[in-house]
Structures are given as structure tokens and as C-alpha cells.
Amino acid sequence: MLPLVAVILFAALRPLKVLPRIRISPGYLLVDQNGNRVSSEEMRGQITLYGFTSTDCGLPCVGSEELMADVAAQIDSQSDVPVELVMIALDEQELLPDALRAYALDRGIEPSRRLLTGEAQQVKVVVGGGFNTFYERDSSGQLQLDKALMLVDGLGILRAEYRGRLPSTSAILRDIDLLTQEARNSTGLTRYAYEAAHLFLCYP
């Protein structure tokens, strides 16, 4: 009887909060603004916030770039669980590192964030197929993009999708903090408490 009461109390009181495990985030091999090849595997062990942009992006990118910059300015760079902020460029052509770097400097993406590029088809598979984020060029060549940010944990699991109306900086920081706490504390017996929190959908 006691275990049953404990389970019901846990489900009712929700002493731990976790973010849902949505699905595996897409794998990729892209190039950053310094010409380095970057794979999704390199992001393991750290929390990654993905955003999408392009060098000619207008209205569709308004807000998300500023939000990423705001988050970058407020995250704890000394945390034992590193947080990486990554922008993926949706340009029609794979950008050369010099152009990518110039754009990153121009938009203030350097040095706190990474900007990744790749072949258009490859990027489409990652962003459209993997992150389920729609974008295309209209007849006038303008980028049409659904505003979205993606939060991926250190195991490569997508934990939050921010679509449409973008969230506040504090909401993203809260989610990053939840992932940080989970990564930091989910060991030994506490791990079972976190698994119970997932089982009972203890979401914020």
C-alpha cells in the first residue's frame, strides 16, 4: 500500500520537473564559420540550442537571432554542463568560410555562437526532415521560414521545440536550467526519480 501511496503522491505533487523526450535529433556533418567540420556527435555531452537563419533572411528571422543573442549573453559559461548555441544557415549555396565568418561577425554571432553551413540538400534534410522546420524560397527568391528554435540535450534527444510565437528568454533559460539539473543530478538513485518524473509527465 505504501508504494502505491508514494507513486500517487509523486504523480500529484511532481517534486521534479523535466522536459519531454520528443525524439532523437537529426545527425549532421556541416561546416562552421572557421571552416571546421562539425558533426552532431560533437554536441554530445552538452546542451545545444539550434536556430535557423540565412545571410539574406529578412522578416522570418526577426526575433529569433536577437533571442539567441540574449540567451547567449545570459547563460552560465562556467557551468559544468556546457551549453552551445548553434545557428544553421539556410542559404541556397553552401557558404565559403570567409563569407560565413563575415556574416557571423556582422550579426554578432561570433564568438558566443556557431554558425553552420552545408550543401542545400543536406541542410534541407537536417532542418526540414530532422527538425521538422519548414523553409523554402518563394518565386521572388525570398526565404519563407517557420520561426523555430530547438533544444537538444547531451544525449542528442530533442527536448523542446519553440515554434510560431517565440518564447521569452527566461523561458528558454528555465528549460536549459532544467536540462542542466537533470544532467547533473540524474545519477545513482536520483536517476530513478528523474525516470519517474518522465513516466508521470512532470513537465513545466
Binding site: K124, V125, G128, G129, N132, E136
Partner: peptide, 10 residues
């Protein structure tokens, strides 16, 4: 109907 990626639509 929108094509997210080749073979994937919403």
C-alpha cells in the same frame, strides 16, 4: 501541403 524534406511532408 508543404515539403519539409524529400519524402517528408506536412
Amino acid at each position: 501541403v508543404r515539403e519539409l524534406a524529400p519524402g517528408k511532408y506536412e
